[in-house]
């Protein structure tokens, strides 16, 4: 490809990505070595870098800008707002994400992506290799990058989905499996899921080079088996979650209950609907009476 001239367009983001793109111009990131220049008029550009989720006022301007830039009109969406509108997803003035308005060729997830990620993404798109000798190409310890599940530890409880600040985590129940799915293209990389996970199963790794040409692929997921109700046979809760809860009750919270483990387990294996049938209520009451007798000593 001939010379690369980049024009930046921002509508309805937090401008963090825009500052990071500006930061890419710093000599240490060697963007200039790749033969790239940032231009200030769309008519001089042949590459458009988008940030932000596009609101009502920005839509017309985006269409106009896209018309103006020169072929081959490569469009790169930088930052999660430009992928999925991220945290502003449900905002009333938002009409994006941009790929609903104009064709987008590449996506760079991140909130905001590190300048290193943007430079690497551009190099990948151009098919050039950049040397990464310096320390700063490696993300530091404790960096909040792409997610990773510990498949042994994850029990599928869905706490992460509840605390998620950007609605990036979905819990999808199938006939006998539950899928916990993180869309890191929708994620704000706040790492609250990592802090709140009861089994430390979800972790944000130091991986930050996430460029893709299909934003449906920005997913990390884990599958867990669901347990069938011992009365009606329908699935309702992950097996591992029951084990975890039982262990917590009988060993951590009230060790005195440990001799009733089997009874407690069989009570827990009844689904929400069946628990309310008369027969099961009676049985549950009987169990509760025995448990309280054990603890109170009468």
């Amino acid at each position: 490809m001939a010379k690369i001239s980049v024009y930046r367009f921002l509508s309805a983001g937090c401008n963090g990505c825009d500052v990071e793109i500006l930061e890419c111009l710093v000599p240490r990131y060697k963007l200039a070595d790749l033969g790239i220049e940032v231009v200030e008029r769309p008519e001089e550009a042949n590459v458009l870098i988008l940030t932000g989720g596009v609101n009502v006022k920005g839509k017309e301007e985006l269409l106009k800008t896209y018309e103006t830039i020169n072929p081959p009109k490569i469009v790169i969406a930088v930052g999660n707002c430009a992928l999925t509108k991220e945290i502003f997803d449900k905002g009333y003035p938002m009409v994006g994400p941009p790929d609903q308005i104009i064709p987008v060729n590449y996506y760079v997830p991140g909130c905001p992506p590190r300048p290193q990620a943007i430079v690497k993404a551009v190099a990948d798109i151009l098919g050039v290799k950049i040397e990464e000798k310096e320390d700063y190409w490696l993300a530091p310890e404790g960096f909040r990058g792409k997610h990773e599940f510990d498949r042994e530890k994850c029990m599928g409880c869905g706490t992460c989905a509840q605390v998620c600040t950007a609605d990036a985590i979905d819990v999808i129940d199938g006939p006998d499996k539950r899928i916990v799915r993180v869309n890191y293209g929708h994620c704000s990389f706040c790492a609250v899921c990592q802090d709140e996970c009861p089994t430390q199963a979800i972790r944000l790794t130091r991986e930050y080079h996430l460029v893709t040409n299909n934003r449906q692929t920005t997913m990390v997921s884990n599958e867990v088996d669901l347990l069938s109700c011992s009365v009606c046979g329908g699935t309702f809760i992950p097996e591992k979650q029951i084990d975890w809860a039982l262990k917590r009750i009988t060993t951590e919270k009230v060790p005195a209950y440990s001799e009733f483990s089997n009874e407690i387990l069989s009570a827990m294996k009844i689904c929400m609907v069946c628990r309310r049938s008369i027969k099961n209520i009676r049985e549950a009451k009987r169990l509760l009476t025995r448990l309280s007798e054990k603890v109170r000593g009468f």
């Binding site: 509508s11 609101n55 003035p93 938002m94």
Partner: peptide, 8 residues
Amino acid sequence: LGYMHRGI
């Protein structure tokens, strides 16, 4: 104003 409005 309004080009950055997100309804926060």
